[in-house]
Design a protein around this nucleic acid. Structure first.
Lengths: 183, 183
DNA sequence: TAGAGTATAGAACGAACGTTCGGTCGTATG
DNA sequence: CATACGACCGAACGTTCGTTCTATACTCTA
């Protein structure tokens, strides 16, 4: 997965069409570490100033890297936001899947979802704020991909609740129950 | 009140320090009508693109007025956002006060608040989105004034709930009850 | 009808924006 | 040692931003 992520970043990096993945030993790890550090700083800046309100020069200042240096890692400001959102969602989903492996009991699985959701939300307030505040900024394919992930997250939750309904033989609107979870 | 509002707009208009209020008959009404129309269009644009994302040229296009023409009515883009937020809050507060005059019963007054809140919220989704989404954009005195109005609104609600508590002799956390009203 | 004052617009301003170009430096590989 | 490549930067590019200047039409009042 780390490899796939690196390729995703790379192919969107400034070097563009002629994708040249790192061939040197340990080079990719270094690259990935650098990316995550920039992503973290960028998240904080986007959270404070908003996506449109934050300039690439703000990000340059926050990361301590030159303006041009940033473009070595990201093809554009838009793609940077995309990577933040995708990285955040992917992490939540991965942690959720890990938790869901622990049990097959319907109620426990719903509890696992809620715990996972709240825990991550509280531990990463900044990222979550960027996620919700800059919801509709991304257009075209980039935005569609994020929206697809979000929909998958919603559908997983919906499925868990419906399993619980079946197991407990109770009746209520799954949609409303799920939506009231998100708020 | 309409007069006070006009002065507020004027004093922040391009003519600046040497405030020259309209002296001609019907001139102020015309001015105010124009302001409200621009405010309405600007609200829609800010709602769709966000404050930072919307340019003065976007507003010019949306209102059908030239870029320079807008500055006859507003001193700056920032002041325009301020006026939208203030106008929205003032309207809610005024309608609330009208409703509260109808009854002295504690429960009825809380009901009146909720009705007023929901009704305005549903009737002016765009304005409310701008209100919440561009919450922290305004700095300094402009932002402080808006935050003061918001605090007053909150305190009114808090007072109503506490009156209800006293009247019904029930115990619960007023703060939590009020906050759960806003969501 | 002359004149004051309001309403509006075209064109331009400097600043800031996202992005790119050309280059230097360090380092691992042949 | 040579050289090829990844990491990074200063300076600039063209564009768009918020704002202002100047001028012209309109509309009441005297």
């Amino acid at each position: 997965m780390a490899t796939a992520a690196a390729i995703a970043v790379r192919s969107g990096s400034r070097r563009g069409k002629a994708v040249s993945l790192p061939t040197r030993n340990g080079s990719r790890e270094r690259f990935d570490r650098r990316v995550e550090k920039i992503l973290a700083h960028a998240t904080a800046v986007f959270c404070e100033k908003g996506y449109e309100g934050a300039s690439m020069r703000d990000l340059s200042r926050a990361t301590g890297m030159s303006l041009a240096g940033l473009y070595h890692y990201f093809a554009s400001k838009e793609r940077l936001l995309y990577l933040i959102q995708k990285h955040t969602f992917s992490t939540i989903l991965e942690k959720l899947r890990q938790r869901l492996e622990d049990t097959n009991d319907a109620e426990q699985r719903v509890r696992a979802f809620i715990e996972n959701h709240l825990e991550y939300f509280l531990a990463n307030r900044q990222a979550m704020k960027v996620l919700s505040h800059e919801d509709e900024v991304l257009k075209n394919s980039l935005g569609n991909e994020i929206r697809a992930i979000k929909r998958e997250y919603y559908r997983i939750c919906l499925g868990l609740v419906e399993d619980l309904k079946r197991a407990k033989s109770v009746e209520f609107s799954s949609r409303i129950a799920v939506l009231s979870l998100f708020g």
